[in-house]
Nucleic acid binder design. Structure first.
Length: 464
RNA sequence: UCCGGGGUAGCUCAAUUGGCAGAGCGCCGGACUGUUAAUCCGUAGGUUGUGGGUUCGAGUCCCACCCCCGGAGCCA
């Protein structure tokens, strides 16, 4: 007898057929009429399947009545139309094989709602909850849609290295990768750690971005995307930041900032459509229990063009705003979170792409505009989450790039190969990074990135 | 890292001026029921984050530290 996923069994209507499913008990309700209702879930879909366990079953008293929430079982029985409310299909069990009991005294999940904070402490079990199960399926759908979107458009999937010897990729503090024994490091003559003795013969770190690698490949095979983990050793304690997170970074040759913004907008809309098409039950759950405005937010992405404004226009809008900000916005200072939220949530009510930021507070690789003050950068901002995409047209002119690096105080020697890309057959190109966890937040209405990645890494937290 | 809030039963929380540590839910036992976050009755369940201090007496006041959450910064 072939076992089926519960998703497949629930979709059937050939009542009378024999089916086999397996999963974990979500609830058990006993009837002293001599039988029990067992809701079994295997994570293949939001719903559980109701199993009717009759008292005649040989192991009814000995096992089934001891089978609490979290127990695992394999059930074979007859698919029947359910007379009860809340489900159309159920299984009248012919046999129930208990695979693993879960002691209700010590099993940490209960039928009642458990706080997200508590679930983080039992991250190895939290995927068995409605919410985290739904998050897991949406996250998967976004990943699938990502590959589909880029593959359809001729982008090559690029596996960028996770270990880098660039000591500054321009995006925050880095984790060091070393094989040196910290208790007994090799030392130079002046007593400092001798990194030339380390595994790579120089200091090495976990990557903060695959962008530089992606640029090299885009300037050879036209368009690529990376999709992998990224690491930031910042002491960030917010609901939007992780020390290890997943980022998708497309990079296109022969493309400018406008092409880049088009790609980002198409990509985000593509993902939202895919989730709407494939995760209906999960979204319904989020809209009911997590974020009542979720469907409106998603509809705003599908039905509208994103608003596009320049940084300068944004500062003007903020200056005219009829409200007080904690920090005033002046041209030349970066937009504060409160400014971004005002623009996205109050002025436009849909995603906003802000472009052309001042050179002073943006990265060295961004292409300098003709005005001499701004660079061809862009941020995509969405309601609730804020910045979900950051990108730019890259500086393809060797002399300008070298000048920008000089102004930013960077050592050109470390970037010799990056400069080579401009020295030999340079071309206009552009790309961006999209944070997967932030995208999951946006598509689920969840509030905290720590709840939308399987095992979150944050300062002082890497238990699982 | 900075600012604010918090840490009391398995979970979510209460505890007046410093005066006998409580409730709901869950678990367990019983009743009842084609049930749906079932309902009703009952039992058990505590090193009040850690370490000091003040006091006849500290969950409560003082000092130090740890951890969690939210906001800010860093950014995706």
């Amino acid at each position: 007898m072939e076992r089926q996923l519960i998703r497949q069994a629930l979709a059937r209507s050939d009542f009378g057929s024999v089916v086999t499913v397996a999963g974990w008990v979500r609830t058990r309700r006993d009837s002293k009429g001599g039988f029990s209702f067992i809701e079994l879930n295997d994570g293949s879909c939001f719903g559980s399947i109701q199993v009717i366990a009759d008292g005649d079953l040989p192991n009814y008293e000995s096992e089934i009545l001891r089978m609490g929430i979290g127990s695992s079982a394999k059930v074979t029985g007859t698919l029947t139309e359910s007379p009860g409310q809340g489900q159309s299909v159920e299984i009248k069990a012919a046999s129930i094989e208990v695979l693993g009991f879960a002691d209700p005294e010590t099993y940490p999940l209960q039928k009642k709602r458990v706080s997200f904070e508590r679930l983080r402490e039992i991250a190895h079990l939290r995927a068995r909850t409605n919410t985290i199960g739904a998050v897991t399926r949406v996250r998967n759908a976004l990943s699938y849609a990502t590959h589909q979107f880029y593959q359809e458009r001729g982008f090559l999937y690029l596996t960028a290295p996770l270990i880098t010897a660039s000591d500054a990729e321009g995006a925050g503090e880095m984790f060091r990768v070393t094989t040196i024994d910290p208790a007994n490091p090799p030392l130079t003559a002046d007593g400092a750690v001798d990194w030339s003795e380390d595994f790579f013969g120089k200091p090495a770190f976990l990557t903060v971005s695959g962008q530089l690698s992606a640029e090299a490949y885009a300037l050879a095979v036209d368009r690529v995307y990376t999709f992998g983990p990224t690491f930031r050793a910042e002491n960030s304690n917010t609901r939007r930041h992780l020390a290890e997170f997943w980022m998708i970074e497309p990079e296109m040759a022969f493309a400018d900032l406008s092409d880049n913004a088009d790609l980002a907008e198409d990509y985000v809309r593509y993902m939202v459509r895919h989730v709407l098409n494939t995760c209906g039950d999960d979204l319904e759950f989020f809209a009911k229990w997590v974020d009542e405005s979720l469907m409106d937010s998603l509809a705003a992405v599908v039905d509208n063009q994103f608003e596009r404004i320049t940084y300068t226009e944004a500062v003007d809008l903020l200056g005219k705003a009829d409200r007080d900000f904690e920090y005033p916005s002046t041209w030349g200072s970066d937009l504060q979170a409160e400014h971004e939220r005002y623009l996205v949530e109050e002025v436009f009510g849909k995603p906003v792409i802000v472009t052309d930021f001042p050179f002073d507070f943006k990265a060295f690789y961004m292409r300098r505009n003709d005005d001499g003050k701004t660079v061809a950068a862009m941020d995509v901002l969405v309601p609730q989450v804020g910045e979900i995409v950051g990108g730019s047209q890259r500086e393809e002119r060797l002399d300008v790039l070298a000048d920008s690096m000089r102004i930013k105080g960077m050592d050109k020697e470390h970037y010799w190969w990056y400069l080579d890309l401009r020295r030999f057959g340079t071309a206009p190109h552009a790309g961006f990074g999209l944070g997967l966890e932030r995208m999951v937040l946006f598509t689920t209405g969840m509030q905290n990135v720590r709840d939308v990645i399987p095992f979150p890494r944050t300062p002082r937290n890497a238990e699982f």
